[in-house]
Design a protein around this nucleic acid. Structure first.
Length: 585
RNA sequence: GGGCACGUAGCUCAGUCCGGAUAGAGCGUCGGACUUCUAAUCCGACGGUCGUGGGUUCGAAUCCCACCGUGCCCGCCA
């Protein structure tokens, strides 16, 4: 709706400028400030003032006089305020917004007939997911949801690094050490169980008996070679470790939830010969050099050479990732990767190499996020066992949310008799929602220092703040239903003409445009920003416009329709963020 | 040293891509509002050299240049 309105305004403005013989390449279309009623504005008069030889307000007035709102569906009127042109929607725009927004699918954009693979998380299967890694599944899952809602055909992939040296180390450690030498696992979960071997192995390699370390290195090397030669027995050995740890990790990710359509293993591209094929093609490139017994690529725009074949004849992570990406390009129209900023250089190398192999890398996008640190600047490491496990954070979040619900139980006005299941449901929705929202609401490139208190603040600008709005809409609609009051099917805009109603309506109408922008820019945090504005608008409406006790039935039914529209809008917006929308709380 | 990212109120962040209306929120502090469709709410006050300095422009938090600070990377690891 908003998108249609904006399109109509652009057409009308362009027509007016043409009629006045003025240039139309920059229409200066913008969103007016919150205290201006207009839905769309233009600052084009500034730009044309010099050309016309008149002050901007005069130019604006002349342009406005030339615009004819007749013949447009959603654009209803134009006005000026100083140098600015302000465009107002038609009654039909208002009526259709309320009508359409009551649909469960409100905000979903038309099918684009374009397939996208979103690769996210892809954490090495070496141990429990910690908070430092949590940004990836939370942002990644939101991107998947946003792209899907924006009309793309989306698959979510977790790329499993099951061929690297760390897996060889892990496999050796798992087969070497005895459980009796290990500390008790922190949780009864396979990832917590096995990570003990990994940590033990790494510390042994660091400061164990030199002779035994040398033997271990030989064993690790043998595992690497076995993988490179596609030795079936070696593959089974590492798979036991990888699959077991991964099962534990996905158990944690499911709690968010972050769902994947496919777990794509790195070894797949070794076993099917595509990595060898990539190596042969890379060797044939003009940029290929053989230095220090290893094959490398001297990339034109990157200082650092990319080694793609070790001197011992084994491939590297990036080599396999090239084969992986060629596979993505064969199967999807676009590929998006959510990846830590520490992989920036590698990703640039990957992109350039794919270009050298004649791929169109415009179809490849990446979203970088910066690391989450602990207060004091300490990083989180699976190998060293530092950091906060995501399971612990989620448990803590749910516990705090439960305590909060129980505390509020006593002074509840609403007598809807929350039972124990409700308390548990709300604790989960609010607790996990707060964690997700805290992370997804921020631009991924910003650094985050993780603090429990801040992440689990249930006050304003948090998930519960927005969730509460959804619960309120549900409360009103339930109440209305039990009173036998139904939302109006079509709404006379004159019934919704207070500032609070108009602002809420304007915000509801904008939702599809927010979805589009978030999808285009791969920035789900825009949806979070939107939900905050939305919640503020709704709360103002809630305070100023009684629905069930409105003066006449017509107004009651019109406002009820607005509430129904608000519920779908905020419900869908929360869904895009992967935050649950409680019916009561 | 080089590359990338970040720097907006005491704190946490929107706004930056695509320059325009007095730079917006929340937390904290202070003061108010529950006989009302849910107070996880709302209203008000206080609080800002938009890192610094130049430049472009009618107009710069936004674009360009330099510098400062912080993080990440610069491995035949992933």
């Amino acid at each position: 709706m908003y998108l249609s309105l904006r399109g109509e305004v652009e057409d009308a403005l362009e027509a007016a400028l043409s009629a006045l013989d003025l240039p139309t390449e920059d229409l200066g279309i913008e969103r007016p400030p919150a205290d201006v009623d207009a839905a769309v504005a233009s600052s084009v008069a500034f730009r044309l003032a010099g050309e016309v030889g008149a002050p901007p307000p005069q130019v604006a007035a002349d342009i406005a006089a030339e615009i004819d709102p007749a013949g447009y569906d959603y654009f209803g009127a134009v006005d000026t305020e100083g140098p600015y042109l302000n465009f107002f929607p038609s009654d039909r725009y208002v009526a259709e917004t309320v009508e359409r927004a009551q649909s469960e699918e409100y905000g979903r954009l038309a099918d684009r007939d374009t397939s996208v693979v979103v690769e996210h998380t892809s954490a090495n299967p070496t141990g429990p997911v910690h908070v430092g890694r949590a940004r990836n599944p939370i942002v990644g899952d939101a991107i998947v949801r946003v792209l899907d809602f924006a009309g793309y055909d989306v698959d979510a992939h977790y790329y499993v690094n099951d061929a690297g040296r760390q897996i060889a180390v892990f496999t050796w450690a798992y087969e070497t050490f005895d459980e009796s030498d290990l500390p008790d696992p922190e949780r009864d979960k396979p990832d917590y169980d096995l990570v003990r071997y990994y940590r033990k192995g790494n510390s042994f390699l660091e400061d164990g008996d030199p002779q035994r370390v040398e033997d271990a290195e030989a064993e690790i090397e043998a595992i690497m070679q076995g993988l490179e030669e596609n030795d079936e027995e070696t593959y089974e050995r590492i798979s036991e470790v990888v699959d077991t740890v991964l099962e534990g990790m996905t158990g944690t990710l499911d709690r968010l939830p972050a769902a994947f359509d496919e777990f794509v293993k790195e070894t797949r591209f070794m076993r099917n010969g595509s990595t060898d094929d990539v190596i042969e093609r890379l060797k044939a490139l003009d940029e290929a050099v053989y230095e220090d017994d290893a094959w490398q690529l001297d990339l034109p725009d990157i200082d650092k050479n990319l080694v793609f074949l070790r001197s011992d004849g084994t491939s590297l992570y990036t080599t396999r990732d090239i084969a992986h990406h060629e596979w993505k390009f064969e199967n999807y129209d676009r590929a998006v990767t959510v990846i830590g900023e520490d992989h920036q250089l590698t990703f640039d190398q990957l992109r350039e190499t794919l270009e050298l192999l004649d791929h169109d890398t415009d179809q490849l996008d990446q979203v970088f996020y910066s690391w989450v640190n602990l207060p004091g600047g300490e990083g989180m490491s699976t190998r060293e066992g530092t950091g906060i496990d995501l399971d612990d954070l989620l448990d803590e979040a749910i516990d705090r949310a439960r305590a909060e619900v129980e505390e509020r139980l006593d002074d509840r006005i609403r007598d809807d008799d929350l039972d124990e299941d409700d308390v548990e449901r709300i604790a989960h929705q609010v607790g996990i929602g707060a964690v997700r929202y805290d992370i997804v609401a921020k631009q991924p490139t910003k650094m985050i220092t993780f603090e429990f208190e801040r992440a689990l603040d249930f006050e304003a600008q948090s998930a519960p703040y927005v969730q509460y709005v959804h619960a309120r809409t549900c409360g009103i609609l339930d109440e209305a239903a039990s009173d036998g009051l139904e939302a109006a099917e079509s709404v006379d805009p004159a019934l919704l003409d207070t500032d609070a109603e108009a602002d809420l309506l304007k915000t509801i109408a904008r939702f599809p445009a927010v979805v589009e922008e978030a999808a285009d820019e791969l920035e789900p945090h825009r949806v979070a920003t939107y939900t905050r504005t939305f919640a503020e608008q709704f709360n103002t409406f809630y305070r100023e416009c009684p629905v069930l006790t409105a003066e006449d039935e017509e107004t009651r039914r019109a406002r009820l329709a607005l509430v129904a529209a608000a519920r779908e809008t905020v419900g869908n917006a929360l869904h895009l963020l992967g935050v649950e929308a409680p019916d009561s709380m």
